[in-house]
Amino acid sequence: MMRLKDGFKGEQCIVLPKAITNIIERDPVASSLYITDIGYYPKARHHYRKRTVPIEEYVFIYCVDGKGWYESGDTRYDVGTNQYFILPPGGTHTYAADENNPWTIYWIHFKGSLARYYASGCTRPLDVTPGKASRISARTSLFDEIFMTLKNSFAIESIRYAMASFQHYLASLRYIQQYRAVKGNTGNDIVEIVAHYFAENIERHLTLAEVAAYSGLSASRLSAVFKERTGHSPLNYFNLMKIRRACELLDNTGLKLSQISFKLGIDDQYYFSRLFSKIMGMSPKAYRNRLHNK
Rank of each mutant, 00 (worst) to 15 (best):
L4P: 00
G7P: 04
Q12K: 12
I14Q: 10
V15L: 11
I23W: 10
R26L: 13
S32T: 12
I35E: 02
K43Y: 10
H46K: 04
Y48C: 05
R49S: 09
I55K: 15
V64L: 08
G66K: 03
G66M: 04
K67N: 10
G73S: 07
D78F: 10
Y84M: 05
F85K: 00
A96Q: 11
N100T: 14
I105N: 14
I105W: 01
R139Q: 10
D144Q: 02
E145W: 06
I146A: 06
T149K: 14
L150R: 08
S153R: 05
I156L: 15
I156F: 13
R160K: 11
R160F: 10
A162N: 10
L170W: 02
S172Y: 02
Q177I: 05
N188A: 08
V191T: 09
I193D: 07
H196T: 06
N201W: 01
N201K: 12
R221N: 12
L222G: 09
H232P: 02
S233F: 08
S233L: 11
L235T: 09
M241A: 05
K242Y: 04
A246E: 02
L249C: 01
L249Q: 00
D251Q: 05
L255R: 13
S258E: 14
D267H: 11
M280K: 13
G281Q: 05
M282T: 12
Y287E: 01
H292R: 13
